[in-house]
């Protein structure tokens, strides 16, 4: 370690180095922000386009030079969208399916997760491992047989077909079980000493403590119902039972030039609005649920 080599690190033009460093930092920060803003614009653009298209008149929409702010605000598009796509009926159907399936599913998830987390029984490990194994199989495998089963039971075109097959989600059971396991066992033992029954303990202690996870599950499940397409289309596609996604797509069958695009966009906006509202207010729960569970609702 010679003196001279240490000197080489000294002999630099301090001024140049400092100003070069400042420039580099500015470019770095500037570039980062530019990139992020560009990406953000790309992400936001479809929403923006949807909203402004939805209030344009059809004639304005068809202008060869597009306008970035509508000349006339045609809110009647929304009313028209509502009737064309029978959104009222669709919203009701979907809400009904969503709420019922979420409540029932929550109930089943809670008691099942509780059994795996706190109760002792033979074969617990094996059963749980088996459950986890089923998570790896793609849903399409089940759909085929379930369709047959549902038809055999005579449930085609009923709400039952839409609700029952999906009441058990192994994923949510796993998630809730993890959460339950984090609640200290001492609480359980203390409750037992106090003579509390398991049932009471579950509903009075564990459920409140696991509330964030339960909220996340609720939201994700409702979102799932709102966005479901394949299964409802398969089993319950008549007027009375059609769900929102299916109805939306089919209300505006593509025939060139004859679709009233602004109205279609208005319909899309209406359908997206509830999700958007939920996102604004409950964003924390959704993002926490997704990152912990790692799946799409």
């Amino acid at each position: 370690m010679s003196e001279s080599s240490i000197r080489t690190m000294q002999n630099r033009d301090m001024g140049r180095v400092t100003s070069k460093q400042r420039v580099a930092k500015a470019i770095g920060m500037g570039g980062t922000y530019l990139f992020l803003c560009l990406m953000a614009l790309i992400v936001l653009f479809p929403f923006y386009w949807m909203l402004i298209s939805s209030v344009k008149s059809l004639a304005e929409y068809r202008l060869s030079k597009p306008t970035f702010w509508p000349q006339v605000l045609l809110f009647s598009n929304y009313a028209e969208a509502f009737t064309t796509a029978s959104l009222g009926r669709l919203f009701l159907n979907t809400a009904y399916v969503g709420i019922v399936s979420t409540i029932l599913s929550l109930f089943i998830t809670i008691i099942t997760a509780f059994a795996f987390a706190r109760l002792e029984f033979k074969g617990k490990e094996l059963l749980f491992a088996g459950l986890l194994a089923t998570m790896m199989i793609p849903g399409e495998l089940f759909t085929i047989t379930n369709y047959i089963t549902v038809s055999t039971f005579g449930w085609t075109n009923t709400f039952t077909a839409l609700i029952v097959p999906f009441l058990v989600s192994v994923f949510y059971i796993y998630l809730l079980r993890q959460n339950f396991l984090q609640i200290p066992n001492e609480l359980y033992l203390a409750a037992k000493v106090d003579g509390t029954s398991d049932w009471k303990y579950l509903w009075k202690v564990m459920v409140p403590l696991a509330l964030p996870t339960l909220i996340s599950i609720t939201i994700l499940k409702m979102m799932g119902a709102w966005n479901s397409y394949i299964w409802p289309r398969l089993v319950a596609n008549d007027e009375a039972h059609r769900l929102v996604t299916n109805g939306l797509r089919n209300a505006f069958k593509d025939t060139t030039g004859e679709v009233n695009y602004p109205v279609q966009m208005a319909a899309v906006a209406l359908v997206s609005a509830p999700l958007f509202l939920v996102f604004i207010f409950l964003r924390k729960y959704i993002m926490a649920g997704v990152s912990r569970s790692g799946i799409k609702g």
């Binding site: 000294q10 400092t18 460093q21």
Partner: peptide
């Protein structure tokens, strides 16, 4: 200062 050089504004990467 490192020696006679004012390094106050210098970033860590350049201080050696």
């Amino acid at each position: 200062f490192f020696g006679d050089d004012d390094v106050t504004e210098l970033s860590t990467e350049n201080r050696g």
